Simulated scan of single mutants.
Amino acid sequence: MSKSTLPNKASYRFIYSLFVIMVVFHAISFAHNYGRKDFQKDLLLNIRKTIDKGISKAEIQQKLVYVLQIYHTQEKESIVETAREIMPENFSGDGIYITELEIREADKPGEKTDDNMNHFYTIDEQQDEIRVYAVSDIALGENPNYKNYDGQTGRFEIMFVLNKEEVDYEILN
């Protein structure tokens, strides 16, 4: 559109001003949406961390509380032996804790769940204590430089401890 096709200069200025306003509005809108992208990403990662924490507590802590209950009601000698007796399928020989979800997945070939958590355990026979670590592949922890149990850096990590007195958990990152 040129000045010669419009009836007067005022019409040209009006249309040109509308065009400039539209371009500025779109630029501001783009900048705003681009800024919200980081906010939404952080929000989704926090939601994922909450989900990972809840699933880990439901999956691991519940099982460890059951072991503690059996240990006390049946007056067993060792909490470690009680755990090995009750949940042998959860403890692989290489320090990897196998969750119930992974056990069910192995029973149904072809079905793949989206767990995105790595689980490990350590057993201290002398202190009669088991520690189970859960490290997220997705959710970020508070410290981006934290070295996770599985070698990752800065990921959400939670540790569960089973001993004769209690089942406890601690968020390590």
Rank of each mutant, 00 (worst) to 15 (best):
N46L: 10
Y71T: 01
Y66C: 05
I21W: 11
K49H: 04
A31L: 13
Q69N: 14
H26D: 01
V67D: 05
L68T: 01
A31P: 08
T73Y: 07
Y34E: 10
S17M: 14
K41G: 08
Y16H: 05
H26N: 13
R36W: 12
V23A: 12
N33T: 14
Q61Y: 02
V23E: 07
I51K: 10
K53G: 01
Y34D: 09
N46C: 07
K63D: 03
Q62C: 02
H72F: 04
F39S: 09
I51F: 11
D38A: 15
N33R: 10
I70D: 12
H32G: 09
L45P: 07
H72Y: 12
D38H: 11
V23L: 14
Q74A: 11
Y16V: 05
I15Q: 02
G54T: 04
L44R: 06
Q74L: 06
F39C: 02
T50A: 08
I21R: 10
S56V: 00
T73I: 04
H32F: 15
L18T: 03
V20W: 04
A27C: 10
H72A: 05
S29W: 08
I28K: 07
D42H: 14
Y66Q: 08
T50M: 11
R48N: 10
A31W: 03
K49L: 09
N46H: 07
I47G: 00
K63Q: 10
A27F: 15
N46G: 12
Y16C: 05
K41E: 13
D52R: 04
T50P: 00
T73M: 09
D52I: 00
D38K: 15
L44G: 00
L64A: 04
Q74G: 09
I60C: 11
S56N: 04
K57N: 06
I21K: 09
T73K: 10
I21S: 05
I28E: 04
Q61D: 02
A58P: 02
A58S: 07
Y34P: 00
Q69P: 07
A27S: 15
Q62P: 04
F19M: 14
T73A: 08
K57P: 01
L18I: 12
K41N: 09
F39D: 08
Y71E: 01
D52C: 01
V65Y: 11
Y34Q: 10
I47L: 14
T73L: 10
Q69L: 07
N33F: 14
I60R: 02
S29F: 13
V23S: 09
Q40R: 12
S29K: 03
Y34M: 05
F19Q: 08
I15M: 11
F14L: 15
Q69H: 14
F30G: 15
I15F: 10
